[in-house]
């Protein structure tokens, strides 16, 4: 009886980080801040990556970056560089590192880390302004990161 409930608990906890998925705390960075291994173990979907990049509640990349390929999404920002040609400038591993935690590529960059769950000052419960009630989730899931990496890799000039 006890063994059954334990097995169930393990299965539930394991569900969030399925086989092949790298947890935010376990991401391996190169010296230059790149991430060689896929975070999800599943190939990225560039079409979904474009949606994540242009959606305010997801990546919202356009808040700071202009992206010609997302011209149908209104109001692109000017805080970061244009993402046009990102697929020429960066390797897949470098793009993954930039999304996961750009501060390890560019020290002090304003860009948020999209796959990081600790080491924050006064982290909140999303946009409520209140303290979190449990562990933080990363801003994007492992698969969403992979999808955006796949999308950015298509941006060639």
């Amino acid at each position: 009886m006890k063994l059954t409930s334990l097995t169930c608990a393990v299965a539930l906890i394991g569900g969030a980080a399925w086989a092949g998925e790298v947890a935010p705390k376990d991401v391996a960075y190169t010296e230059d801040g790149a991430v060689e291994a896929s975070l999800s173990g599943v190939a990225g979907d560039a079409a979904n990556g474009a949606i994540v990049a242009g959606t305010k509640s997801k990546g919202n990349c356009v808040a700071c970056h202009a992206v010609s390929a997302l011209a149908d999404v209104p109001f692109h920002g000017e805080v970061g560089p244009s993402l046009d040609g990102a697929g020429d400038r960066w390797s897949e591993a470098e793009l993954r590192g930039l999304l996961t935690n750009a501060k390890l590529t560019f020290e002090g960059t304003v860009m948020p880390a999209f796959y990081k769950v600790e080491g924050f000052i006064r982290p909140g419960d999303a946009y409520t302004g209140k303290a979190p009630s449990g562990p933080l989730s990363p801003l994007l899931t492992a698969q969403e990161i992979e999808d955006v990496v796949a999308f950015l890799a298509t941006l060639k000039e």
Partner: peptide, 8 residues
């Protein structure tokens, strides 16, 4: 401060 996803 709230918009930084912080506890204000």
């Amino acid at each position: 401060v709230r918009d930084t996803r912080a506890e204000t």
